[in-house]
């Protein structure tokens, strides 16, 4: 009955460097890099242009985003630790159940997981840049910014995007961002949550002194990155209209 967290199911483990839960909850970055490299090569052979390659990578990530939304939203409640869980745990572990009507009443309820469905623009963006990022990469995104010029544009910034850790973009591919796959995931999450958006990944040069990593490089021997990944989220007009209506 109690949804205990001692599960060792592989689907319950996050992909990333520091799941921090149990031994083996981390997927090897090398294994991921090899498979991602194959994915990019597969699509590169079939794409005629840089933008088509990016679109293909985005659509590969889109489905992942939908599933990640389900999984992360489902798990989010376990982390939050509401009193609901405590009551259930007591019930499961103690032979003596206090004869409070409140608890009895609750016990008859279906074991809903009390997941909060994000309905507001800022909350879903926060959910993506913290919860989703943590479950995928083992860390939160570095910052979430709002565009000054356009009210419908937001930026999620990651200074160490995992997907492109070992990628060097050749000069003839110019503006290609190797993190297009991740932008597809973000688009999938947002779309699945009812916030239709166009998400694109951009590789932007890091200014001098803008960011310094604590605790050395990710990979020993490889110099720190010179570019950051900026995920530009452009919401469709109806999402903004709805959010404005909710504001009132």
């Amino acid at each position: 009955m109690a949804m205990s967290r001692s599960s060792t199911n592989i689907l319950d483990r996050p992909l990333g460097r520091s799941g921090g839960r149990a031994e083996g909850s981390v997927v090897s970055l090398s294994a991921f890099a090899y498979i991602y490299s194959e994915l990019v090569q597969y699509h590169q052979q079939r794409a005629a242009s840089i933008s088509e390659l990016e679109r293909r990578l985005e659509s590969a990530g889109y489905g992942v985003g939908l599933k990640v939304l389900e999984m992360t939203a489902y798990r989010a409640k376990e982390v939050s630790g509401r009193p609901w869980t405590i009551i259930l745990l007591l019930d499961a572990h103690c032979s003596f159940v206090p004869p409070f009507s409140l608890i009895r009443h609750r016990r008859r309820d279906p074991p809903s997981r009390q997941t909060k469905r994000e309905t507001r623009l800022m909350s879903i963006l926060h959910f993506v840049s913290s919860s989703v990022w943590k479950s995928l990469f083992g860390k939160a995104a570095d910052s979430l910014e709002r565009s000054i010029d356009h009210a419908d544009e937001y930026m999620i910034i990651d200074y160490e995007p995992i997907a492109s850790t070992f990628v060097s973009i050749p000069p003839d591919l110019g503006q290609l961002s190797a993190d297009a796959y991740v932008s597809g995931i973000v688009a999938g999450v947002l779309d699945g949550a009812g916030f239709t958006a166009r998400v694109t990944a951009h590789s932007v040069k890091v200014e001098e002194g803008e960011y310094t990593r604590q605790g050395g490089n990710i990979i020993p021997g490889i110099p720190p990155r010179k570019d950051k990944a900026v995920f530009l989220v452009k919401f469709s007009p109806e999402v903004l209209t709805r959010d404005a209506a909710l504001e009132r």
Binding site: S30, A33, Y34, Y36, S37, E38, L39, V40, Q41, Q44, T165, F166, V167, S168, I169, P170, L173, A178, I219, G221, I222
Partner: peptide, 19 residues
């Protein structure tokens, strides 16, 4: 690390990986 995990590096070809 830097060449073999790079999707744009082809085996046996000249290494042009900036990383």
């Amino acid at each position: 690390d830097c060449a073999l995990k790079d999707p744009f590096y082809e085996l046996e070809m000249p290494i042009r990986c900036e990383l």
